[in-house]
């Protein structure tokens, strides 16, 4: 039975998580714009607030005030539900992310498996958006993302299994505790796993150079071509939340999570996460986009063999 006190706690936790997600997404949007601008020797947003920090809020207000356009011929239910199908899994993943020693919503004993399972359902939303929009570019984008995520799930999971061999547990907190002696990235076989993870996770969340579902230059905006206003904003928030999630997992699995000297745990955790996010942004604004068949080829011919070989070597080391 749910008592009143536990209900209050639940509401507080949920609002804290949602507050953090929106604050983080807004910060990331501003930061991404700044990083991209400075890489391109521009300034980026400068007008709203100090160096444009309030720009995401201004954008959000603009998107909220926009007319909600429903194009003719959309598959109504599918089209309406798609943004929620993308956003909700992205938010749900936060349940098992350890921000600090005791700062975790629920330390599930299948934590990492839960996160991976729940985030990969986000693909439904993308595919629904692509299908329901009744737009050829969206359809192509949706089809691409389905193929892409299925392929990249495999090296992603194998690289995580490599970590699990060393940690011996699926619980996120226990994985952090297992890194008490040294960060997992310092282990040579996990070092490889880290890169495999980062690359396939980038593909999972559709970021450049694997941003095929929304490939600007050929598919206009891919699966969200027809979306505007708040629905578009939901896709946007989901993208940045997903990026935070994969970086948080990388920080937890490979960089010791919230562990670190001097500073409190959550600070270390955020520093590590945002460093990885910065690298992802840096990569995004540097490289060209791969083509769809090369993307598949890369997953099956390069990442999967590497991660498999890596897993075998790691297993051999542990058994020895």
């Amino acid at each position: 039975m749910v008592t009143l006190s536990s209900l209050i706690v639940m509401v507080l936790v949920v609002s804290a998580v949602l507050g953090f997600i929106s604050a983080s997404a807004m910060f990331l949007i501003w930061w991404e714009r700044k990083v991209s601008a400075h890489i391109q020797t521009r300034f980026g947003p400068m007008r709203v607030g100090w160096h444009g920090v309030l720009q995401p809020i201004a954008d959000a207000i603009k998107l909220l005030c926009k007319e909600d356009i429903v194009p003719v011929g959309v598959d109504k239910w599918v089209w309406w539900l798609a943004p929620f199908f993308v956003t909700v899994p992205a938010v749900m993943a936060f349940v098992a992310i350890p921000f600090g020693k005791n700062l975790i919503v629920q330390d599930l004993n299948l934590g990492i498996l839960y996160i991976i399972a729940i985030t990969s359902t986000g693909i439904f939303g993308i595919f629904m958006a692509g299908w329901g929009s009744n737009n050829k570019y969206s359809l192509l984008g949706g089809m691409r993302s389905a193929a892409q995520i299925i392929s990249y799930e495999i090296p992603l999971l194998i690289s995580i299994i490599t970590v699990l061999l060393f940690s011996g547990s699926l619980s996120m907190q226990k994985i952090v505790t297992a890194q008490a002696k040294y960060w997992f990235i310092l282990n040579p076989s996990l070092f490889v796993a880290f890169f495999v993870y980062i690359i396939s996770a980038t593909a999972e969340v559709n970021r450049a150079p694997f941003d095929l579902p929304e490939a600007e230059s050929e598919l206009v905006a891919g699966f969200h071509t027809e979306y505007s206003g708040m629905k578009f904003a939901m896709f946007f928030i989901a993208e940045y939340t997903n990026m935070f999630t994969i970086s948080a997992i990388a920080a937890t699995l490979f960089l010791g999570g919230w562990r670190g000297p001097l500073l409190p745990g959550p600070v270390w955790f955020l520093i590590k996460t945002y460093t990885i996010i910065f690298v992802l942004m840096w990569v995004r604004w540097t490289f060209p986009r791969v083509r769809v068949d090369q993307l598949m080829g890369f997953a099956w011919k390069v990442l999967t063999p590497i991660s498999l070989v890596n897993l075998i070597i790691a297993g051999w080391f542990i058994l020895k």
């Binding site: 521009r42 450049a208 230059s217 604004w285 490289f287 060209p288 986009r289």
Partner: peptide
Amino acid sequence: LGAFATPLFY
């Protein structure tokens, strides 16, 4: 080719 804007801006 999808190198979004960076080479273009340079």
